[in-house]
Structure formats: C-alpha cells, structure tokens
Design a protein around this nucleic acid. Structure first.
Lengths: 325, 325
DNA sequence: GCTTGCTATGGAATCCATTTCATAAATTAG
DNA sequence: CTAATTTATGAAATGGATTCCATAGCAAGC
C-alpha cells in the first residue's frame, strides 16, 4: 500500500533520502535515518521489487532449463545450483520444459524481456545457433560440451569418461561388452556412441547391434534389459550403463534370476547414485553437484562484471571401484 | 532498447494503440495493427516485463519452499507443480531452504514485495502463526495437514495412511512390528508416532524402543537398520518404513545377509518409488505428483479470482500389494 | 430525427523506486 | 584564510508499460 513517497512525506524528508536509507547509503544523518526507519516500521512498508527491477534493469533471478526434475541426474545438478543461488541471494526459476522447443524458447525470451538476469541450460535440443541469438541479452551457460561458442559451458568429457569405463572393463578382462544407453538422441549419447565404436575398433571387435540397448531411463528399463540378455544366444559378459538407477534395476533383476554379478555379468554404471552405493555398484562419478555449482558461479560472475566473454569449464570424472566388475 | 513510445512514434500511432496491439485488444483497426506489428518486428522490440509487473501488480510467478529437491518425495511434488505451472504459463521459483527459518521468511517476504503472486510450502518448520501473517499479501498453500487455518492446504492423512499400513501387516499375521521413521522432527513424523502408539495400544502390544529406528533418510540408512536388526536378540518380524528408498537399501542388505523377505522380515514402504517397483516392494502410494498439481491449481484459482478463502484438499492413499509382505 | 451502442483512437495519469544533478553546509588541506 | 573535499539533502528525470477517461465517427433502433 504505502510507497516511498508516503514514507518521505510522513518522515518529513525527500524520497531520495528514503531511498538512501533503504539502500544503506552513507550520506544520511542519523536523525533522518531513524525518522525514516520509524516511519517504515509504522506503515509496515516494503519496497515494491518490481519497481526496483524496472529501474535497475536487474531482477536477481536466473532461469534453468531442464527436461524434468524428477531424474537423479538433473535433480542433483539443480540441488547444487539452488544452493549457490541461495547463497548469492539469487532467485532460481525452474523451467521444466521436457525438451519442448517452444517452451525452451520462451525461457530465452524471458532473458530478452529482462525478467531474468541469466540462463542455465542443463539439457536442451536447441541448436547452438538459436542460443547464440540470445547471448546479446545476458549470460547463458550450458551444461553440455558444444565446443567453442558465444556462450559459456560446464561439461564432462563424455567421450573420455566413457572410453575409460570401457577401458576399465577391458583391463579387467572383459571382452564382450554391451551398452545400455539413456535418451537415444541426447547430445551426450552420440558422443558416447562414437566412443563405443572407437573402442571396438581399437580392440578389434565387431559392433554387435544386439548388444546395444536403447532408451534405458529407469529401474524398470534395467530389469527389461536383463530379460533381453537372458534371451540372447550370445551374451555379453559385461555391460556399461549410463545411469546407476538403470544399472540398479538390472542388478536386482539379475539376482532374482540367478545371474551372478560380476561372475556372469560385470556392470559399470554412471553418476554414483545412492542406490548404487547400496548395491556395491562400480560406477563413474561425474561430479554432478559440482556441475550446478559451477554453472551458477559462471553466470553470477558474468552478471556481476557485465562480462559476456564465454568461459568453458571441464569437470573431472573418476571411477569408483566397488564390486560389480 | 526500444520501448513502446518509440514504437508508437515510428508507427504513427499512440502508445495506447501499441499497448492494445500487444495485448490483443479488439478495438484496433487492421491498418494500424499491421503498422504496429511491422514496427515491432523492425525494431526487434519486446516488452520489458518488469514494467508490466509494476503496473499490473502481478508477476505470473509463484515460489515453492522446499528443504531439498534431491529427495524423491520432494522432487515428485515439484515435478507436478512445474508441469502445471508450465501449462498455466506461470514461473516457478524454486526456494531450496533446507528448513532455515530466515530463508523461508525471505520467500514470504517476496510475496509482500510483490515479486511473486503466491507461495506453495511443501515442507517447513515455520509456525502457522508466522505464515498467517502473510496471507494478507497473497495466496499461500501448504502441503501439510495443519487443521483449519487462514491459508489453504493439500494433504495426505498421514495418521490413517500409517494406521492402515500397520493394519495391513497385522491382518497378514505380523505381530512384531518395527518402525523406521524419516526426519525425526518432521510434522508428519509426530502424527505417525501417535498412529503407531495408538495401534500398539489397540492391539495390546507394548512399545519397544529398540524397534524404533530414527532418521532414516536414504538407502544407506536402510542398510544400517538391517545391521541393527541383526544384532537384536528379539527381532521384529515386520517393518514399516516411511520412504521406499530406505526400504530398498534395507532389502538389498537383507539379501546380502541371507534374510528372506517376507519370510524372515516383512517390509512395507511409502511413496511408490521406482526402485521399489523393481524390488517388488509392497508400499503405500501417497499420490505425490497429484499433490504438486493440486497445490498449483489451488494457488492459481485464488490468484485468478482474487479470492483468499482457504481451501483444504485431502488426497487419497492406497496400498500397493507386491511381494515383501 | 434523436437516442443508444459499438468501434477506434489518443492524452494523461499511474505503478514505485533509483539516480543524476544541483546546491549548500561543514570539514579538511595547504 | 582561502581552496578543495566531504557530507547531507532534495528536485526532477528515468525506467516502460497499462488503463482510465474523453472524444468522435458510424450504424442501428424506434
């Protein structure tokens, strides 16, 4: 109800002085300062932040584009992001777009509209060209590896992470390796597929279409994969699975069906998820929380310094050896 | 850069007419409309949404207070909430407060500041009195059962859900029932504890402190609980566990230690989580996605109708019978 | 022919804080 | 004792839309 003008009138000062008190500006006498504070309290006044946003051109909010929060991979990144945003007193607008192009675009439009100060893109199907068009309006950071572009990125080297997983299996003596892949047309999927065929080529093995399992998203898919394996005449003796929860579903189904792990089937997962820890699953940790944290920090720095020079930050991965290989 | 005034000047119309075009107001002639649209395109104009928010007093944003997104219980609620928000073209501001009182208050202050149009509180430690103080500033809905208050709620009857879980075990012939509880001082924990002791009283059983397991939050805690059980001289033959992931950790550890489920130990969980499905875990489904969806709809209705009459909506639960009881 | 009602348009007020600029008093420096 | 700072204060411009109100042309109703 009350606005800065009314406070000024009642406290017998100018609006400028009230604004100074509100923003802790030093050049206000102690008498006036207390008078203003008293009036503010009396009228139960707070700033209308929309006016502040309008005049300052900043909203202290960033948006994050994500297909779905209820997937471990994403929720962990968001957790880190949200933690950092809280620390920096920034608002985090969650945009669960399910890869829908028009919704993803709407978020970038928010940047143009000045509704937000920056955008973190965790996963998208948008082309780099489309995103490039919006870099003029504010910092954008993407959690994918896209090479050099006009926007910043934080990424894991999926190629080498995947290759080192394969190499690990190979070093342990497994030669027949199958691959359970997540979202078939994800950006990292294609990189991993290349890593996979490069590995096969390097070790002189043929590509077996039967040993490729597509669209493995959750525990149930893992279970389904095990039954696929059971039907095969020529089975792989090791599996590399992108996502520990898929691996978990598979391992549980394996136990139920008397398949010994790793004796009959070795399994290596990704992302070091809690359920994998319980199962003793060997996995490749991708430092996902770090991803969210880093993404926020990049955005934050760019907002603070009004700097649009793109930054690229590579995160490390590491193999966590447990008992499924 | 460009604003509505400039568009008006260039298109040779008034700002009012431009605003009308922008808002699809019918009373604009076709000639002027196209002139305006052409100018908008030419100058690559978009509205400054902060100005719109200021003048309209609405932001089309709601905030959600949540301790941590990376917990299944919460992330599922958020998923539903985010889906509905997207449909209604609302922004969802994620406030991961980790139960910190000052942070939770800041979110309510955002409502007073007019930064947001409403608040969904998924879980909080704030007292109803504190929340009541903010209902004057906009709709608030809480996902907890707090009896009749000045703000709306969506809730599960934890008491009866828990009792029916116990009853189910009892009907199946289990008499020695232990209880793994989540966050010890959560609002639903105390209700469940009452349900538990009421049940014991009703069936004439004594309360066994040893059979109460506190602070079971994740898979590892479930594993830990199993080892606690192994050490007991007098073991329960059934366990009711709030949270399927805790139950999952326990079941996996049971398998490793040769405890047969349900023969040696029956287990009933809560929330119907994916990992539980793989394990064949009997569980009580609390319709969590529905919770988020409903919470949003309540807020949305109240915003639309400028209606602050509190609504209370109870969600159903149901037992999903699988093979651990 | 006169009253309504609808279409079309624009001027000006409004939302509310920040910030630049101008001014003046009080210090400090030299 | 004058010049240069520092402190303190307020008027007015600014950010960029929406909307109330006034005006006017035109068609329909009686």
């Amino acid at each position: 109800m009350a606005n800065i003008k009314e406070i000024a009138r009642m406290a017998g000062v100018s609006v400028t002085t009230v604004s100074r008190v509100l923003n802790n500006h030093p050049y206000v006498s102690e008498t006036k300062r207390t008078a203003v504070l008293k009036t503010i309290k009396k009228l139960n006044y707070t700033r209308n932040m929309n006016a502040v946003h309008l005049i300052t051109g900043r909203t202290h909010a960033i948006a994050v584009i994500i297909p779905n929060i209820n997937l471990f991979y994403f929720s962990v990144i968001i957790e880190g992001l949200a933690q950092e945003a809280l620390l920096a007193q920034y608002r985090l607008i969650l945009c669960q777009t399910d890869y829908r192009h028009e919704e993803e675009l709407k978020v970038l439009e928010m940047l143009r509209n000045k509704e937000i100060d920056g955008v973190v893109i965790v996963s998208t199907r948008m082309s780099s060209e489309v995103i490039d068009d919006y870099t003029a309006y504010g910092p954008i950071v993407i959690c994918q590896d896209r090479g050099e572009r006009r926007f910043s990125s934080v990424y894991i080297e999926h190629y080498s992470a995947f290759r080192s997983g394969l190499q690990y299996l190979h070093d342990k003596g497994y030669e027949q390796i199958g691959y359970c892949e997540g979202r078939q047309h994800g950006s990292s999927s294609s990189i991993r597929q290349i890593a996979f065929s490069d590995f096969l080529a390097a070790t002189g093995q043929p590509f077996q279409e039967e040993w490729m399992m597509y669209n493995c998203m959750n525990e149930e898919d893992g279970g389904r994969v095990l039954h696929q394996l059971l039907k095969m005449k020529n089975r792989p003796n090791a599996l590399i699975i992108t996502g520990d929860h898929v691996a978990a579903g598979l391992i549980i189904e394996a136990w139920k069906n008397g398949i010994r792990i790793p004796e009959d089937l070795a399994v290596i997962g990704f992302d070091d998820q809690p359920i994998g820890r319980s199962l003793g699953l060997t996995t490749i940790d991708n430092q996902l929380p770090e991803m969210g944290v880093t993404a926020f920090r990049i955005i934050y720095d760019q907002i603070q310094n009004n700097d649009s020079y793109p930054v690229h930050r590579k995160l490390d991965y590491r193999i966590i050896e447990r008992s499924t290989v």
